[in-house]
């Protein structure tokens, strides 16, 4: 299902939390939703679901959510780890959610087992750790097998094994033609999980592209090479008008193709000891991009 957000906007008093935000979630893709604290991510998710009243609209295959009869088969949400009544058991909570789209009790039990909550299914949710609460939230989101998943910080509090499971699960879920939007602060995890990212800051859209394009766009040098004659290679590259930066015997070169650089060294009888792509990280790129627009800056250490 294609999700189209058109001109989303929201003000809290005089503060504009989200401003004219438009983007599209395509089916079959896990999209990461990034932004510094207070950038408007959660507000955007709430606007998409019409939980917050604001400007703009969100269309699910061209229709607003209110035009669908069974909402939880259209969109599954997990907006907060602790969105349950503490006195209610995990199974009762899921059965309650299941009522909206008449999901069977068998499916509830199946999800409970799948998500690893079988042993605590009849325990009150107030006894749950953050990780268990996150699992319960995820179980609720996927209960009716929705076509769209909107998840706000689903990996918070999860142990490494469960994060790994979550990553695989979301990629598989998207591979079945579903749209997945995941907001997270775990940038290294997002780099592995998402194919596309949407970056916002102060409620404004900063980027909406594939993870690779996002990283490359903000990266000066693509290749790093260590050779026996760095002076020679540096002058050869400079003569060809290619940007190069020297760090001892390591050269950082602004070229896209390792093969082309390797051939160039071979043609000039330069021995290559090491050649690799200088890949920037999502975290590094994200920090550079948002450093100017971060609202609640933290002091240096």
């Amino acid at each position: 299902m294609r999700v189209e957000c058109i001109g989303l906007g929201k003000s809290f008093g005089s503060k504009r939390a989200v401003n004219d935000l438009s983007f599209v979630l395509e089916p079959g893709v896990v999209t990461g939703f990034l932004g510094p604290n207070g950038s408007g991510k959660s507000t955007t998710l709430r606007l998409m679901l019409d939980l917050d009243r604001g400007d703009g609209e969100t269309l699910f295959d061209g229709k607003p959510l209110t035009e669908y009869s069974s909402i939880s088969r259209v969109v599954g949400t997990h907006l907060d780890a602790k969105l349950f009544h503490p006195q209610r058991t995990a199974r009762s909570h899921l059965r309650m959610l299941a009522a909206e789209s008449r999901v069977s009790d068998e499916r509830v039990d199946e999800i409970i087992e799948y998500i690893g909550l079988k042993d605590v299914a009849k325990k009150r949710a107030k006894t749950f750790s953050l990780g268990m609460a996150q699992r319960l939230g995820l179980a609720g989101a996927v209960l009716a097998d929705p076509k769209v998943l909107l998840l706000d910080e689903p990996a918070n509090g999860l142990d490494p094994a469960t994060i790994h499971w979550l990553r695989d699960f979301l990629r598989q879920y998207a591979a079945m033609g579903r749209s997945v939007l995941v907001s997270s602060h775990l940038l290294s995890e997002m780099e592995l999980m998402a194919e596309r990212i949407i970056v916002i800051s102060k409620g404004e859209l900063l980027a909406n592209e594939s993870v690779n394009d996002f990283i490359k766009r903000n990266q000066s040098f693509a290749l790093a090479v260590r050779v026996d004659l760095p002076d020679s290679l540096q002058s050869i590259l400079a003569n060809r008008g290619i940007d190069v930066q020297r760090d001892g015997d390591l050269l950082k070169v602004n070229m896209d193709s390792p093969r082309e650089l390797g051939n160039l060294c071979f043609e000039n009888s330069i021995r290559v000891w090491e050649l690799y792509e200088e890949r920037g990280s999502l975290e590094q790129t994200f920090l550079e991009l948002t450093s100017q627009s971060e609202e609640y800056k933290i002091g240096g250490v």
């Binding site: 019409d50 939980l51 909402i71 939880s72 949400t77 602790k82 609720g140």
Partner: peptide, 18 residues
């Protein structure tokens, strides 16, 4: 009251946006 106290009003309204 419970929905507002525990924030579950968001759960209820995301299931029933009408």
């Amino acid at each position: 009251g419970h929905d507002y106290r525990h924030g579950t009003i968001r759960t209820s309204l995301s299931l029933f946006p009408n």
